[in-house]
């Protein structure tokens, strides 16, 4: 086991450079593993969407004023009953409560600002830590339908 020095609670820790091929490959690996663990298509959709949105927020908002190439840390643990993912950027952080509700009439035409609400809608739990520069999210596999 490597990376234990940083956040031992996650099995895998990767530095993302913003390279699309890298994130595509990681997502592909995660999705394949979740399929082996019998996560449904809907569950895999939820996890993939949440990773996409968290990573996009890290680079686009967290690293907005940082030079290109500053990496974002992605950590994850995949288990048969739950998926845990953390995304940490090196930006100044933010206050999640200050993000306007994108579904309000006055915000509905805004082209951005929907990432966090989608993550909250799809994941079982979401928490921000540090200065808001780290998001930790968990997806619990729903019980199979009787």
């Amino acid at each position: 086991m490597s990376h234990q020095s940083h956040h031992p609670r996650y099995d895998v820790s990767v530095m993302l450079t913003g390279d699309r091929a890298q994130i595509d490959q990681i997502e592909q690996d995660i999705m394949a593993r979740l399929e082996q663990f019998a996560y449904t298509k809907a569950s895999r959709f939820a996890v993939k969407l949440s990773i996409e949105e968290a990573v996009a927020n890290a680079f686009n908002h967290g690293h907005k004023h940082l030079p290109p190439g500053v990496p974002v840390r992605l950590e994850y643990s995949l288990a048969p009953d739950e998926v845990r993912v953390a995304v940490e950027d090196q930006g100044p952080g933010f206050v999640p409560a200050d993000v306007p509700d994108p579904t309000m009439d006055e915000n509905i035409e805004q082209p951005s600002g929907r990432g966090i609400m989608l993550i909250r809608a799809y994941m079982s739990s979401v928490a921000f830590s540090g200065t808001g520069n780290r998001i930790e999210m968990t997806y619990k596999k729903p019980a199979p339908k009787a």
Binding site: F45, K48, L49, E52, E53, A56, E109, Q110, P111, S112, R114, G115, L118
Partner: peptide
């Protein structure tokens, strides 16, 4: 289309 991001939604709004 199997997946789209909130950035794609933003483009659709534009």
């Amino acid at each position: 289309v199997d997946h789209l991001s909130s950035a794609a939604l933003g483009t659709l709004i534009t």
